[in-house]
Amino acid sequence: MKKMFKLSLMMMIAFSLVLAGCGNKPSNEGQGQTPAGSAGNTGETKKSEAKIGMVTDVGGVNDKSFNQSAWEALEKLKKENGITTKYLQSKGDSDYVPNLNQFVQGKYDLTWGIGFVIADAMKKVADQNPKSNFAIIDNVVEAPNVQSVTFAEHEGSYLVGVVAGLTTKTNKIGFVGGMDIPVIKRFEAGFKEGVKAVNPGAKVLVNYTGAFDKPDLGKAAAATMYNDGADIIFHSSGATGNGVFNEAKDRVKQGKKVWVIGVDKDQSLEFGDDVTLTSMVKDVEGAVTRYSKQVIDGTFKPGAPVTLGLKDNGVGLPETSKKNVPEDVLKKADEYKEKIIKGEIKVPEK
C-alpha cells in the first residue's frame, strides 16, 4: 500500500512539473527581443537603406567650418536612421570629379558637394549621370538632378559688422577672406556695410589669402592687421581662419585684448570665449539635414535653387554671443535684423 502511495505521489509531482514547464516555455516574443523588421518599444531606430555621400572642398572635413557642419549633420542622421554615410576629402580641384563619380559608381542615393568651387565638377558629373541625385552648398548648379542651396551671407555679415563697429576700441577692424569668389565677397560686402551703418569712422582692412586650407596664411594676415591697429578680425576663410584664431590666442596670452569673429559655425565652441567675439553662423547643418531626410523618406526631388537668409534663420548670430557682446549691442543688431527682414535695408552683395 505504501509502495503504491509513493508511486502515485511521484506521478503527481512529475505531472505537475510537466504542466509548469509547458506554461513557462521561453519565447522570443515579450522578452525584450524585437521581431525582425520591427522597432518594438525598445527605442531602437529602424535601419534605413539610404546611402548618402559627401565631397568636401579643399578645406577638409575638419575645417571647423561648413564642411564640418555638413558632415556632423550626416553623422547625426546615420545615428538616428541607420543610413550609410561616407565622405571623400578633396585636396585639389582635380579631385572633385573622381570623388563625385566614386559615389555615383557606388550607387549612392544622394551626393553632397560642399563649397562654391565644386559647382563645375558637379555640373559635369550630374549631366553625365542623370539618374543620380546631387546637392550642393554655396553655389547653383543648373541641372534637373541637383538641389542647390545658397545662403544670404551678406545679411548675416551685416549683423556681425554692426557688432564689430560698436565694439572696436581702435576704429580699425579686419576682414580675412579665403579665395576671392562671389560667396566670400558677399561676406565682405555685408560686413563692411554693417560696420559703416553704426561707425562710419571705422576703417576696415581687407586681406584675401587665396586659400581655404592654409592656417599659416591666416595667421600671417591676422598678425599684419593686429600690428596695424585692428582689434577685431572677421574671417571667412575656412581652415585658413584657424590661423587667425591662433594669432589672436598668442596675443591674448601676451596680455593684448583682440577679438576674432568666427564664420559658418559657432566657433567659440572650438576656439574659446577668450578670443571669439561672436560668429556669423550659416545653418549648413540644417540644410543638409533637411534634404537628406527627404532621401530617407523617399520624397527627395531636386527643385529650384534655395537661398536661406535672416528670415529663414539660415544665417545669424549664435546664442553664445551674449557671453562677450554687451546686451545693448545685441539689441542694436536685432533692430537691424528686423529692418533687413522687412526690406527697409537692402544689404549689398558686392
Rank of each mutant, 00 (worst) to 15 (best):
K6A: 15
M10C: 15
M11I: 11
I13R: 01
K25T: 14
K46A: 15
K47D: 05
M54C: 10
M54P: 09
V55C: 11
D57N: 02
N62I: 07
K64I: 10
S65K: 01
N67C: 08
G82F: 05
K86L: 15
L88H: 11
K91Y: 14
G92S: 06
P98H: 02
Q105G: 13
I114L: 06
I118Q: 13
K124G: 14
V125T: 06
D127P: 15
D127E: 15
A143G: 04
V146A: 06
Q147I: 09
Q147T: 08
V149R: 10
T150E: 09
E153Q: 09
H154F: 14
Y158D: 02
L159A: 09
V160T: 12
V160Q: 12
G161R: 01
V162I: 04
T170S: 07
K172P: 11
I173H: 04
I173M: 01
V183A: 08
I184S: 08
I184P: 11
K185G: 14
E188G: 09
G194I: 01
A197G: 03
V198D: 06
N199R: 04
G201E: 03
L205S: 14
L205P: 14
N207Y: 15
G210E: 06
A211W: 12
P215N: 10
P215G: 03
D216H: 09
D216V: 03
T224C: 03
M225P: 03
D228K: 13
D231F: 06
G238A: 06
G238T: 05
G238P: 00
T240R: 02
G241N: 01
G243S: 07
V244Y: 00
E247K: 07
E247Q: 12
D250H: 10
R251I: 02
V258Q: 03
W259H: 00
V263T: 12
D266N: 04
D266E: 02
D266W: 04
E270F: 15
E270W: 14
F271C: 10
G272V: 07
S279A: 02
V281W: 03
V281F: 05
K282H: 03
K282Y: 05
D283A: 11
V288Y: 08
V288R: 01
T289Q: 09
Y291V: 13
Y291W: 15
V295S: 05
D297V: 03
T299V: 05
F300V: 01
P302K: 08
T307V: 14
G309S: 05
L317N: 07
T320N: 12
E327R: 01
E327L: 12
E327T: 04
V329P: 02
L330T: 10
K331H: 04
E335W: 09
K339G: 01
I345F: 03
K350M: 11
